[in-house]
Simulated scan of single mutants.
Amino acid sequence: MIIVYGLKHTLAPRKQQIMQAIYDCLNMQLDIPPRKHTLRFIGLEREDFFCPEGRTDDFIVVEINLMQGRSEDTKKRLIKMLFCELEQRADINAIDVEITIKEQPPHCWGFRGMTGDEANDLAYSIYR
C-alpha cells in the first residue's frame, strides 16, 4: 500500500505523473512489477493539511508500506530516485516531498488468501 497526501487542488492534476513515477521507481529499485502495490491519493483541503514551514502548495507526503527485508542502501536509493523522478515528471521540487518507508514483517501482510511469509510465488525478492 502506498499513500500520497497533498493539497487537493495541486495533487489532483498530477496524479498520473506521480503514480507512474512511484511505480517506475519501485520497479527499478526493488524489482517490483508495475502496479503490484495499491496506490491511494488523499487530496486534502488547506485547513486539513498543515505543511512544514518553508514548503509550497506542491508539498506531498509519500508513505510506502513494504515487507521487511530490503537493505538500507536499497531503501536509500529508492528514496533518492523518488525525489528525482517526482521533480522531473510531476514538477515537484524535492523540498516539497516527504517520503516515509514503513516496514512490517512478512507474516503481518495478507493477500490472495495467505500471509506474506506463506507466499512463495512473488515475482520479486524482498531481500535485496
Rank of each mutant, 00 (worst) to 15 (best):
Cys108Gln: 13
His9Arg: 13
Lys102Val: 15
Cys51Lys: 15
Asn27Val: 00
Val61Thr: 04
Ile2Pro: 01
Ala94Leu: 05
Ile3Asp: 01
Trp109Gln: 07
Ile32Phe: 14
Leu26Val: 02
Met19Leu: 12
Arg112Asn: 14
Tyr23Val: 08
Leu86His: 03
Asp48Gly: 03
Leu7Ser: 05
Ser125Cys: 06
His37Ala: 12
Pro106Phe: 10
Lys76Ile: 14
Asp57Glu: 15
Thr10Gln: 06
Gly6Tyr: 08
Cys84Val: 14
Leu122Ser: 03
Ile2Gln: 02
Arg35Tyr: 13
Glu63Arg: 07
Ile18Arg: 05
Leu82Met: 12
Gln29Asn: 08
Ile3Pro: 00
Gln29Thr: 11
Ile126Arg: 06
Gln20Leu: 05
Gln68Glu: 15
Glu72Ile: 13
Gln17Ala: 15
Arg128Ser: 12
Phe49Ser: 08
Val97Phe: 04
Asp24Gln: 14
Thr100Val: 14
Met67Asp: 02
Leu39Ser: 11
Gln20Asn: 09
Gly43Trp: 02
Leu30Arg: 08
Ala12Thr: 14
Arg77Val: 04
Lys76Ala: 13
Ile92Tyr: 09
Ile92Glu: 09
Leu122Arg: 15
Asp58Cys: 09
Glu45Phe: 03
Ile42Asn: 08
Leu11Gln: 02
Pro105Lys: 10
Asp91His: 12
Arg55Ser: 09
Thr100Trp: 03
Ile18Met: 04
Ala90Thr: 11
Ala90Leu: 10
Asn93His: 15
Lys36Asp: 15
Asp48Leu: 11
Lys80Ser: 09
Trp109Phe: 15
Thr74His: 01
Arg70Val: 13
Arg55Val: 09
Ala90Pro: 04
Phe59Tyr: 15
Glu63Thr: 10
Phe41Asp: 05
Gln20Ser: 07
Pro34Val: 01
Gly69Met: 03
Asn120Trp: 07
Asp24Cys: 01
Ile60Thr: 01
Glu103Asn: 07
Glu103Cys: 11
Asp48Thr: 06
Phe49Ile: 11
Asn27His: 12
Asp58Glu: 14
Gln88Thr: 13
Ile60Val: 13
Glu118Asn: 04
Ile95Gly: 00
Arg70Gln: 12
Arg46Gln: 12
Arg14Leu: 02
Gly43Ala: 03
Lys102Arg: 15
Ile32His: 05
Arg55Leu: 07
Gln16Lys: 12
